[in-house]
Design a binder for these strands. Sequence first.
DNA 1: CTACACGACGAAAAATTTTCGAAAACTGTT
DNA 2: AACAGTTTTCGAAAATTTTTCGTCGTGTAG
Lengths: 339, 339
Amino acid sequence: MEHEKIGITEVAQHAGVSVATVSRVLNRKAGVSQKTRQLVERAMEEVGYERGAASGGIVGVITPGLSIPIFGVMAERIGLALAPHGLRAVVCPALPGGVQERDFLKSLLDLGASGIVFCSASNTLENFDPEVLQLLEHRPVPYVCINGRFEDSSSVAFSTDDAYAAELSVRHLHGLGHRRIAMAAGPVGNRPTDRRVAGYRAAMTALGLGEDEQLVVHQTYSVEGGQFAAEQLLAQGVTGVIAASDQMALGAIRAIRRQGLSVPEDISVIGYDDGPLMEFTDPPLTTVRQPVDRLAAEVARALVGLLSGHQVPVGELMFQPEVVVRGTTAPYHPRRPPA
Amino acid sequence: MEHEKIGITEVAQHAGVSVATVSRVLNRKAGVSQKTRQLVERAMEEVGYERGAASGGIVGVITPGLSIPIFGVMAERIGLALAPHGLRAVVCPALPGGVQERDFLKSLLDLGASGIVFCSASNTLENFDPEVLQLLEHRPVPYVCINGRFEDSSSVAFSTDDAYAAELSVRHLHGLGHRRIAMAAGPVGNRPTDRRVAGYRAAMTALGLGEDEQLVVHQTYSVEGGQFAAEQLLAQGVTGVIAASDQMALGAIRAIRRQGLSVPEDISVIGYDDGPLMEFTDPPLTTVRQPVDRLAAEVARALVGLLSGHQVPVGELMFQPEVVVRGTTAPYHPRRPPA
DNA sequence: CTACACGACGAAAAATTTTCGAAAACTGTT
DNA sequence: AACAGTTTTCGAAAATTTTTCGTCGTGTAG
């Protein structure tokens, strides 16, 4: 029985550092240089120290809430993909007015989480909480981003190709004969939104449909946001609306109907996400599907790779979305004048 | 400066036990009698020992997945209600094929979670994993249940009054002139389902609509489950279907349409939950709304109470649901014979 | 009435975390 | 370069917590 109990002490000895330092590395405490940390981590592997066995390997999935179904689905899939590896995904819904993202991150770090997934969290924001990144730098933990990576950092990200999604939407509507195509975009400073706006603009230009600044209205991703945006856009005589989320699309449809027009006869609407139940809306929503399954699978694979010490290429991998044509888009025909 | 550093040692001394015991209580380890535990807990308060400050006070919310929107909403609301108290709700989606509920519970316990919320988890099942209850008994942690309590245990629960919900549904359809009213119920052995079936039967009997066993079909809560159940029921000439979830209701509508009938003209359908977006379905779904907000608020209040040592009355509090009449129910009129 | 199995504890050992202070590494200046 | 003023990084030792191991009642079946 050579099992001489490998503890923090043995690791320290092997790494040629003090137990204090190993303890700090173990708990992801600040105050350890990159070099030393790696030294200790290598030593831990070499001596065969089992870390985190106590915490059972939990992974925090940070999302912007859960009332938008697509995030719930995404989190669930990630959890499912991680489970076979013995990892337990806990979902942390960061909401304005609720728990802040940085607080969740702190808790997860203190809890000894094995990894983090930023699912459309602050990693998608231009003005993200600097403390989040700081925490990540001071107390390194393997993490993966979805839909945008932290700038200035060597993070791994998997995203839906938003520019392409917008292009697909424009093309779809253009193919149906629409020419005044508008975008009910998400909030400014949101990376996916920015990319979609860029993709939209590029596609419009490429198709010779002009570059009317007014045709992009920024709003929140909610039903109400979509409704408001659509109201603005209808005043400009658009016949096709590209919404930044399924919720916004439904809001847009509501706004259109309130004006006595119908979807898709008078105005075509295309959503984004393809959350559950979108085939049951009235009419069934034409939308751009985020490849949730593939995204979740890749995120899980990358995280598992990171955890087993593999080097995962940093950068942002783009996943191709696809248009799911249902009933809210139809060939353009001249609008009848309002009665 | 009298801050003599109050540690586990001081607590042990004050409680008249060993530090080992205090440590065990602190980590919710098994092997401490109820009496001793309380003794230690009282001592901790008296000396002012601050526990869990490290973990920041996290609360695990265990749900059966997140792809059913209502659970996401419920979890989100609970998190929102808990946040002002400095508690961070992490959502644990337990799924068949994924992480088991008991594993989440174990992790949560090891992590030093301050409390647990069983949101329509195994607490709603007749044959729940005995290990869960065992864990809860051996390593006590404050917890609250939603939609059913653990039997044989002194748990606190807040539930939607399912029997009443079924009664409301029957009454609504009866009031519209329907007489052959069926139920597309959830899986057997599921407490909410059992209650709804009982409520349905009672209401049917009270209204003199007979007690046809065949009129209740058990299925999963999914769209497909609803579709399948509706197919069975349509063969029996029912004109009103009470579904056990919004998803099932949508599945039922699909089945009805596949038979060339329409909703609500030929058949009325009423759902359950009133998840987000149900007003956008085709037709907008008439459904029974679970009082999610009030439920979440009470759960939070109870948990905070338990955490601050208050005695919260055990038992199950029933919250009244309400019918949200939209477009899938209409007055009965004789079905036209199939073409 | 004896064994025997068990759960609950304490004492002491082992392990881990935190504290405190001293090098070492930067930084912007003469 | 040389130099103060800082900030980081880390080790030794102290403090604290966790675990191990063995004892003591208790209940129970033989």
